[in-house]
Amino acid sequence: MNFFVSALSTILLGLVVGFALSLQKAEPPTEFEKYSSANMDFATMSEVGYAMAAFGRESTADYFELKDYQEYVQLAQNDHAKALSASDSPQVAASEAQASKAEAPTMQLAQVEHPAKPKAKPSLKDWPKSVIGIQRSTELINVEKVWQEFASNSALSDQLDSYTVSVFAIYSDFNSDYSRATISIGYDKPSMKGEQQLIPKGKIETLLKPSNYGNNALLNAWQDIDYSKAVKAVVERRDYTQNSELTSLFVIYQ
């Protein structure tokens, strides 16, 4: 009898404690706390777990570059505020910032989102002769798919040893109405293994100076190309550092 009373009182204790804990008014999770092991492979989980255990939250935030993410959210909010005050141009950038803010940051190195404030301006002088990446012939309207294919190419992104990297998208071999082109996207990393994509030589003119642009700004810049000249290529350059992404656009005439 004593045994059953004891067992029952244990169950009762469990239910009471469980119920009391379910009434907690816990703080809502922060961006940091949204991280869960649910989508993590065991090795990463273990690595992060050890980092967490050894040095606390800070090292884990470093592991995921979470400080960058939070900084990014802050910058995106600033951009959004600016966008609201200046209604004409950066609508797209603001909405993108909003969208990114809503999404949880991804965890792979190649997919980490970066804040969009220029830190160091790249110049024409540091142009490479070629880049390492992929080449596809496609309708310009479908160019996003090539970017996606490039972004998900882990054979290339796994070779990256730093967040400071430049990506070049070279549009060339246009058809008569400029609706179709050969697009080569690659990293400016000569030491990488992969297909080499040459950047055509010619007279380079700047269409967009390095900065943070939305899709509309990029598309509008294509209107500034002098189509009366023989266009060899259009080059979209993206310079990434740990904290920024700069986009610039160039045209190469014959």
Binding site: Q24, A26, S36, S37, M45, G49, Y50, A53
Partner: peptide, 14 residues
């Protein structure tokens, strides 16, 4: 009442 992540718990365990 400060929230923890599941990884934080895993980390403390290790």
């Amino acid at each position: 009442q400060q929230r923890l992540t599941d990884l934080e718990l895993f980390g403390w365990d290790e």
